[in-house]
Write a protein that binds this DNA or RNA. Structure first.
Lengths: 207, 207
DNA sequence: CTATGTGAATTTATTCACAGCA
DNA sequence: TGCTGTGAATAAATTCACATAG
């Protein structure tokens, strides 16, 4: 099935596989079976095989998948190879947490710029990144930064998104619990942490 | 179709609807059409109608849905009515951000306890919550706290999860980028913020 | 005439079962 | 024998189209 379009649900799982594969790779392993990967990432073995079958031929029957080749191919499909520079707006609690978060590197991301409107924060350094005046968001286009992260209060989120769009940003990760309107040429993913928490009681076994 | 099981995908959307409905309710509106709600939450109108049809009869043709009744019913289905008290472990950058985050109240959540292992943090108050010694996690059972939030470094996550389980916690929200193993009677939802970011380049229009 | 509610049609995703390769 | 890769079968979710209620 190598010529099919990759299903969205498979694309959603690819970063999960990638993190698991990198984990195994760092342990020095060269190959892994669908069964072993399944245990690590909590996906069925046949689902994994089906997913991988959409884009190629990485397995050897009786041996397993070539970890290195898979990492390269998944990175290529997700367009993570080559790396990405992101700009963060809003260095409050959440923004500082994102700057400190170590989980971005695996996927080739780097937070290369940070902005805030609070006078006393501007010029300070947080985890190696200097906080700039939010007025300078407009300069992002010239600086080769293509991703934006919004970590400001909800009332400011739409405005920041529009500044991002003007500056040429093509992808936005939004942490404000509010829907953001942008032109179709820009992709927005909103993460509302409370929404995942809100599903927890439903799935909790009664006690 | 009032007697069918509610599909998982519908359950995933219910918190989204709930947030939108509360937003409208606070504006003083009494009714809303599927079309208007659709614009706010970025879901198709027919999808909304289908979702609501799984659990009842809240709409009036020609008028729309009764916002108040819907809020009550969705809260009931998600088991959010009555409220939930959660315990946070790990008051670093992310933990502090969660304590400061205002988006939990809509869903009836309250972070009622916070724990850390760092001596100098214990006894301090962050956003009104006193930080306790992580050794006291075991007391959660007696305190009527049923949800746990993990915001510690990945290497500590599994251990904290086990302490939660021993203390009688039935639902865990995990922010560490690692799969957590718990008994089946406990539900875990893992949020890895980098994973959503990792899908962004794939969906970004080429430029 | 407007907007819900829902069967039916379609599309998409998961699961199975097994042929075939190392 | 062990494990991949994939058609076929099943299940689930989305979309449509329209009867029906206010």
């Amino acid at each position: 099935m190598r010529y099919h379009k990759i299903p969205d649900e498979t694309v959603r799982r690819l970063p999960v596989y990638l993190r698991g594969l990198v984990f195994y790779s760092e342990k020095g392993l060269k190959n892994i079976s669908s069964h072993d990967l399944a245990k690590l990432v909590a996906v069925n073995p046949w689902q994994i095989r089906k997913d991988f079958s959409y884009f190629g031929d990485f397995g050897t029957p009786g041996v397993g998948y070539d970890i290195h080749k898979l990492i390269k191919e998944i990175s290529r499909i997700l367009k993570l190879d080559g790396g990405h520079r992101a700009a963060l707006v809003g260095v409050g609690n959440l923004g500082a947490a994102l700057l400190a978060y170590g989980g971005f590197e695996v996927f080739g991301f780097e937070i290369a710029a940070a902005f805030d409107i609070a006078e006393h924060k501007i010029g300070q350094r947080v985890h190696g990144v200097e906080i700039e005046d939010a007025a300078r968001i407009a300069t992002l286009g010239e600086r080769g930064i293509g991703l934006g992260i919004i970590a400001v209060p909800r009332t400011a989120a739409q405005g920041i998104a529009e500044e991002f769009v003007s500056a040429g940003i093509r992808g936005i990760l939004n942490f404000s619990p509010v829907h953001i309107d942008v032109p179709k040429k820009v992709k927005v993913i909103t993460i509302d942490i409370a929404m995942d928490l809100a599903r927890l009681p439903y799935y909790m076994p009664a006690g």
